[in-house]
Design a protein around this nucleic acid. Structure first.
Length: 555
RNA sequence: GUGCCUGUAGCUCAGCUGGACAGAGCAACGGCCUUCUAAGCCGUGGGUCGGGGGUUCGAAUCCUCCCAGGCACGCCA
């Protein structure tokens, strides 16, 4: 638990009991009391609209209700002032004393500051990337990768028991296509006159894989290739490509707890679950195929699960996969998908319902598409032609930190133009540097402090009440707010909030840096500021780590 | 045709589980380096929140219709 959250909770409870105490108030149904941070600073630190919400059932003007609530409020030591404002808001002004306590809290909790128990250890799975192992990861995958990774970090910090998972589509048609594509290139390399079929993968990496096979085994697979025996080509390509995917993700700072192979579902798990649904009349036979009755659960139409030829569709595997997820005990499953899969959402929700779970147990985050911009112009990409920019290329060009920050700074709902030039720029326009620069500046101050021989060890005796300027108070407020930001971001499953908060905190520090010189003559003030700087460093480090960014000591 | 996402300052976006005069960065203009990194700070100007209607004490936020852009609508994965 964090200070800010304790204060908020106890204030909410005080308001609640004040309403219950006030005899003149006739309230039968008390809605949850919302405390919000007002946009305008003149409206206090927190405000509630509860009086206006109650106006209807209490049959009294909001401002009167607000006054009644205030009159019945017992005094809280962290509240400096309370007032009725506007149409009936109650504004609360916090005393600054509690803000100083936050510094000790940060020192004490260190890397764990921000950790809250909102999730109550509930098991949550975040499944993301899950790109087919038929080619290297490209820019489209990168956004989902960062969104999923940071979201998982946020949920973990918020007290959920999080597991990150990658679903490998290593069964099905596309794997044979992959094998075939490599086999054809292999034959071409060995001088066989043969054309690549229309539906083949045609990236340069396919030829490269074929070349590796030639280098290792010469023409020993030639007759197999000619006979259409694709197994070796398929398996070789699969292993190599999956390996590369893992390496690329690692270089992007992403590690999964579990790599789930679709093959493990074939055929037993799929049969098991389709039998079960068939027994429940949720799967039926028609035109020689087996259909899932998804329309019963809100989908536009029913969907084929077993094709006429007896093979399962992608959906069949997905039903078995999601059954498996819930059987593993996840209370909530979050899937991060590219927006091009949005047509699949209803049908998956239907699956979850049909399996006997709550629709809400499946959350799908759709990440809108990314366009790369270079010199203001769109970088052309076509997956069919095998002509796309890889995740590796982008990381190489702009660096891991810039790429990660850019991918996570926007709401997943909005289309994203990734400006390569901007991401590379080491300037004020580039938010990544702005945030990291705050950390580097702090390190520089600490370096100076060390050189001056200032004692840093007896922090408890330092009087933080020396910190009184607006810049100092604002910075303290941002630091105090971090756990709340985690809560908000976790509740709304919105990782971009934390990217913005990092910017905001950096901004509060830069202002402080310019207005409040740390190495002042006054030793008490110097030490108080030093403590504030150390606390800021800690929170910045926590935030940067949450976002998967490095915290450079100098820039 | 149907569904999903988007439309907020010149540009890129936040705010959208309804709240008090609509925010940030960039760009424009004007200031700040004899002390801790100017990759920074401070200030000024700039908006019918795509448009119409509705619900509400109160709407950028909810409902509805329309306009514009993107994506998706397979016994592919």
């Amino acid at each position: 638990m964090s200070l800010i959250r304790e204060l908020k909770t106890s204030l909410q409870e005080e308001i609640k009991s004040a309403i219950e105490t006030a005899k003149q108030l006739e309230v039968t149904d008390l809605p949850p009391i919302k405390l919000e941070t007002p946009r305008n600073e003149d409206h206090g630190d927190y405000a509630t609209n509860i009086a206006m919400v109650l106006a209807g059932q209490a049959k009294m003007p909001p401002r009167e209700i607000a006054q009644l609530i205030i009159d019945n409020l017992t005094e809280l030591d962290f509240i400096a002032k309370t007032e009725v404002a506007g149409p009936g808001f109650i504004n609360f002004y916090f005393s600054t004393a509690w803000l100083y306590d936050v510094v000790a809290e940060i020192e004490e909790q260190a890397d764990n500051y921000g950790q809250i128990d909102l999730g109550a250890d509930e098991k949550v799975q975040v499944e993301f990337v899950s790109a087919n192992p038929t080619g290297p990861l490209h820019v489209g995958h990168s956004r989902g990768a960062v969104v999923g990774d940071v979201l998982a970090n946020i949920l973990q910090t918020a007290g959920f028991d999080v597991s990150k998972e990658y679903y490998i589509n290593d069964a099905g048609n596309q794997m044979d296509l992959l094998g075939n594509s490599v086999a054809i290139r292999y034959q071409q390399l060995l001088g066989v006159d043969i054309e690549l079929p229309e539906d083949a993968y045609r990236g340069e990496y396919i030829t490269e894989l074929a070349r590796q096979i030639v280098d290792q085994d010469g023409d020993s697979y030639l007759s197999a290739a000619k006979d259409g025996q694709l197994e070796h080509f398929r398996e070789y390509a699969y292993q190599k490509l999956l390996e590369r995917i893992k390496i690329d993700l690692n270089n992007f700072g992403i590690e999964f707890d579990n790599w789930f192979s679709e093959r493990s579902l074939h055929p037993d798990k799929i049969e098991e679950v389709t039998d079960k649904l068939q027994a429940e009349q949720l799967i039926y036979e028609q035109d020689g195929a087996l259909w899932f009755k998804s329309s019963k659960f809100g989908d536009d139409k029913d969907r084929v699960v077993i094709k006429e030829d007896g093979t399962p569709t992608y959906l069949a595997a997905d039903i078995a996969y999601h059954q498996d997820k819930y059987q593993r005990g996840f209370a909530e499953v979050i899937n991060v998908w590219g927006a091009d899969h949005h047509g699949y959402v209803e049908r998956m929700k239907a699956v979850v319902e049909a399996l006997g779970y709550q629709r809400e147990a499946l959350q799908i985050i759709l990440v809108q598409l990314v366009t790369l911009l270079r010199d203001g112009k769109q970088v052309p990409m076509s997956k069919r032609a095998g002509d796309f920019v890889t995740m590796r290329d982008v990381i190489k060009e702009v660096g891991k930190d810039a790429a990660r920050y850019f991918y996570v700074m926007r709401s997943p709902d909005s289309h994203f133009d990734f400006d390569l030039e901007l991401a590379k720029e080491e300037s004020t326009e580039n938010p990544v540097y702005y945030i990291q620069y705050a950390h580097a500046r702090i390190c520089s101050i600490l370096e100076q402090v060390k050189e001056e021989g200032v004692e840093v060890d007896s922090l408890e005796e330092i009087d933080l009440a020396k910190l009184t300027t607006e810049a100092e108070i604002n910075l303290l407020k941002e630091l105090a707010d971090y756990p709340e930001q985690i809560a908000k971001s976790a509740e709304s499953r919105a990782p971009h909030h934390m990217a913005r908060f990092a910017y905001q905190l950096a901004s509060a520090f830069h202002t402080f840096y310019n207005k409040c010189y740390v190495l002042v003559e006054d030793q008490e003030l110097l030490k108080a500021r030093l403590r504030l700087v150390l606390a800021t460093k800690q929170v910045l480090v926590n935030l940067l780590s949450l976002l998967g960014l490095s915290a450079p000591e100098n820039m």
